[in-house]
Amino acid sequence: MASGSIDQDNRMNPSPRGPSVLRFAAPQNFYPLAGRLAPWFAVTAAVLTLIGLWLAFFVAPVDATQGNVYRVIFIHVPAAWMSMFIYLVMAFWSAVGLVMNTRLSFVMSQALAPTGAMFCFVALWTGALWGRPTWGAYWVWDARLTSQLLLLFLYFGFIALTRAIEDPRRGDRAGAIIALVGAVNVPVIYFSVKWWNTLHQGASVSLTKAPSMASTMLMGMLVLAFASWAYTLAVTLWRVRPMILERERHTEWVGAVLDREGGRK
């Protein structure tokens, strides 16, 4: 993707000599840190997923009204949470990038986007499969489902824009602007869709999900939410690493990293 001619200022700031935590905002410090942390997050995600699945299938009781179908909730709700949360984090990093001019923040927001879109898709897919037996249709134009769909489109727009612009500097900033514009619009979209929905919704569709939630159900959901959190961290850090290498390819430290990688094969 990112191609461009070489120029000296094609580097991420700030300088590597800073005190405290800010030191890790420098790519040559962040790169190895990301490499060290990612496996731990991945292991945490895997363990939490196993615990969560065990709670979901073997501990949580059958729902009195919905039967076993409700077990979809254990991935549906965490995925929906994550998809919204990741968009907010993306917008946060975009704002940080625009204000502080730190290129690593832009890279972070771009690395988060595909995972956010993935969770968005999972939420829609599981929602559809859950909807068929409970509401009798794979899709209803419910406020939550519809806003989720629009959120997926926002993710697509962000990803498409940052990929289409060749110059990474321009792509970073353009993506940041659209992420912020999207974040401002997410609540507007949600409330407008909700308003529209209350006017149009037929009486046949009632959307009470899992009325009285047993505490074991809540536990399972929370554990899987933490699992998807850890997963997001792991996969984002893994995705950030090659992006940093690509952008910092003119520096000596990337040269050293590449020599190590090349020698390993």
């Binding site: 039967g67 076993n68 077990r71 995972t115 993935m118 499969l129 859950w130 996969v235």
Partner: peptide, 22 residues
């Protein structure tokens, strides 16, 4: 799954397939 196997396993199967793909 009390007759809902398709819906439950369809959800979980696709979710983990997508994660593996990513």
């Amino acid at each position: 799954m009390g007759g809902a196997g398709f819906f439950v396993w369809g959800s979980y199967g696709v979710t983990f397939a997508v994660i593996a793909l990513e």
